[in-house]
Design a binder for these strands. Structure first.
Lengths: 141, 141
DNA sequence: ACATATAAAATTGCATACAATGAGATTGTG
DNA sequence: CACAATCTCATTGTATGCAATTTTATATGT
């Protein structure tokens, strides 16, 4: 039995898991100001880029499935940020579309990335190295 | 408004968040075999190292609070892997202790890290770079 | 045309996460 | 000693995540 390898500090997955949680958590004060959770925020980011998108494609961008997205999108709809409508050309699809209120949220949201970057204790160079390694793993999934 | 910075692909947090989810998810088939979730698995890892520990200290290792740990530990207790007892010297503390069944789980669990490492598309050297950067961020929290 | 296969969302069930609050025990200080 | 502050754990409420299943719609083969 490999005792050493089984220790928490020797596993890559644990700092990945814990670090992701902590960094996401550090968004909360800023996201509270604009009334979004982190997952809602990244969903809105895709919409600010694409205007309209169906649930499946949104899920491919975010690595999330309809089990997570359907209730999340219903909450964004209740908050007035998006509209959800069946695609008339293919009724299987639900098309997500920004409302004016959702579009307007883009401006205050655009201030957040810089604030977060400032409180990360790594250089721009280190961030790029980290970014590349993470996508190397992610692209493999 | 900084449109470029607001794009999903330009944020460090997103690949961190998505990568952590996907890697944790890749544990599932192996963890299913021994009847643990990922969070239960990392809690057990701390116990395999420490034998006994209170909830607060366990939470400091795992970056989790009692709101997550209390129900999780109750499930591990129901499954027969641990015991939960009040510390007689200080009744505020709950002492977590492995059962024989929990101790026995260490052996099949010890096979998992190697299996995971093999399916990660990065070199040992890259894993170490990643590890160090993640802890640099984590230690700052 | 019609039965079958496939596709997209929604639903269900379970287990986290975490902020906020509550309850009980202990400690520090006047 | 009294008692306020602190500490530890549990509870509550909300929002994910995700596997598995169901529902509805579309595509495909004969």
């Amino acid at each position: 039995m490999d005792n050493e390898r089984l220790k928490l500090k020797n596993q890559l997955c644990f700092p990945l898991y814990a670090c992701a949680k902590e960094v996401v958590r550090s968004y909360k004060p800023y996201l509270d100001e604009i009334g979004l959770t982190y997952t809602q925020y990244i969903a809105m980011m895709v919409l600010w880029e694409h205007e309209t998108i169906n649930v499946k494609t949104l899920g491919e961008y975010l690595y999330l499935d309809s089990g997570t997205l359907t209730p999340l999108l219903k909450r964004l709809e209740s908050a007035g940020f998006i509209e959800r409508n069946r695609d008339l050309n293919d009724e299987r699809n639900v098309i997500i579309k920004l409302t004016l209120k959702g579009e307007a949220l883009k401006q205050p949201a655009s201030m957040i990335p810089e604030k977060i970057q400032k409180c990360l204790p790594i250089t721009q160079n280190e961030a790029e190295i980290l970014y590349k390694l993470l996508y190397k793993i992610l692209d493999n999934k």
